[in-house]
Amino acid sequence: MHLLEAKNVHGGYGGMNILNGVDLAINADEIGVIVGPNGAGKSTLLKAIFGLLRVTEGSIELRGEPITNADPGELVLKKMAFVPQEKNIFPSLTVQENLEMGAYSRRDNYQHILEQVYHFFPPLADKRAQPAGELSGGQRQMVAMGRALMIEPSLILLDEPTAGLSPLYMADIFERIVTINAAGVGVLMVEQHAKQALKIAHKGFVLVAGQNRFTDTGMNLINNPEVAKAFLGG
């Protein structure tokens, strides 16, 4: 059984479809990466999965359970987390307060996962009392990801996690995504740095005009001449 499976998903904005029959599936131990040109429907697909955009046709399942058009709050309780590209931290709150906000739905002691987040993102441990808005772009992204991890998700959705980051921070974020996945969290992310992201992907999905153009392992997509020429800059 797949951790997440989307079948023939259609959806869009204002009556206009952006997604035109997308298929996608990842397992619990996998990193899935969605790439493609601007306007392909990549971020729209994540929003549709997380209940932020109405699916008009098709289905989405989490561990075999239908979740099509489920409420995002319900999905959080089902251990799915979503990190949007923008406005994904509380700038005036400290790092630790941001992380604790991620545990708002918990009624148990979450100290162990707080310490695990600091283990995943060591730079945050030293800055736990600092307002998150004062951090670098890469560290703010760590806060956003860390807050999502506070529910101990089985699946985390990441929308452009390296957007606007320097190459050094980009490599750092990718490395930490691999570490999070190795700890038992399935990852599905949209990423503009396609080649670098596909290097860590177990599965890659190339979307064009809201449809699957290519689906394969990350390395097979990198080594596919047609994919490389059209989508990977070479």
Score class of each variant (00 low, 15 high):
residue 111 Q to L: 06
residue 116 Q to K: 13
residue 105 S to R: 11
residue 69 N to L: 09
residue 73 G to D: 06
residue 121 F to H: 05
residue 121 F to L: 10
residue 116 Q to I: 01
residue 89 I to W: 05
residue 158 L to K: 05
residue 90 F to N: 04
residue 136 S to A: 07
residue 107 R to N: 09
residue 130 Q to H: 11
residue 131 P to M: 02
residue 50 F to D: 02
residue 89 I to T: 07
residue 117 V to F: 08
residue 103 A to P: 08
residue 46 L to Y: 04
residue 92 S to T: 13
residue 147 R to W: 07
residue 64 G to A: 09
residue 126 D to F: 11
residue 131 P to V: 05
residue 72 P to L: 00
residue 116 Q to A: 04
residue 73 G to P: 11
residue 154 S to G: 15
residue 100 E to Y: 04
residue 148 A to R: 02
residue 81 A to G: 12
residue 85 Q to V: 06
residue 152 E to G: 10
residue 129 A to L: 14
residue 105 S to V: 12
residue 48 A to Y: 01
residue 88 N to M: 12
residue 73 G to C: 10
residue 152 E to D: 15
residue 127 K to L: 14
residue 68 T to S: 09
residue 65 E to T: 13
residue 161 P to W: 02
residue 63 R to D: 15
residue 159 D to L: 14
residue 164 G to Y: 04
residue 43 S to H: 05
residue 51 G to T: 06
residue 115 E to V: 01
residue 67 I to K: 04
residue 145 M to S: 08
residue 87 K to M: 12
residue 138 G to K: 06
residue 142 M to F: 07
residue 111 Q to D: 09
residue 165 L to E: 07
residue 56 T to R: 05
residue 107 R to A: 00
residue 79 K to S: 12
residue 103 A to M: 08
residue 115 E to T: 00
residue 89 I to V: 12
residue 55 V to S: 06
residue 117 V to Y: 04
residue 57 E to D: 15
residue 146 G to M: 03
residue 148 A to N: 02
residue 58 G to S: 03
residue 62 L to Y: 09
residue 161 P to L: 09
residue 152 E to S: 15
residue 85 Q to F: 10
residue 73 G to S: 11
residue 106 R to M: 08
residue 74 E to I: 13
residue 140 R to N: 04
residue 133 G to P: 13
residue 158 L to S: 09
residue 115 E to D: 12
residue 51 G to M: 05
residue 143 V to A: 05
residue 95 V to E: 03
residue 126 D to I: 00
residue 117 V to R: 04
residue 48 A to F: 07
residue 122 P to N: 01
residue 152 E to A: 15
residue 136 S to F: 08
residue 148 A to H: 05
residue 164 G to W: 07
residue 95 V to K: 03
residue 146 G to I: 05
residue 45 L to W: 03
residue 99 L to A: 02
residue 75 L to C: 10
residue 120 F to T: 02
residue 129 A to T: 15
residue 66 P to R: 04
residue 106 R to Q: 09
residue 154 S to K: 15
residue 99 L to R: 03
residue 114 L to H: 03
residue 102 G to H: 00
residue 110 Y to E: 03
residue 91 P to C: 06
residue 57 E to P: 12
residue 90 F to S: 06
residue 111 Q to I: 00
residue 123 P to F: 01
residue 146 G to T: 02
residue 73 G to Q: 10
residue 124 L to S: 00
residue 48 A to Q: 07
residue 161 P to Y: 01
residue 124 L to D: 04
residue 43 S to T: 07
residue 104 Y to P: 00
residue 112 H to V: 00
residue 81 A to I: 08
residue 130 Q to D: 12
residue 48 A to V: 01
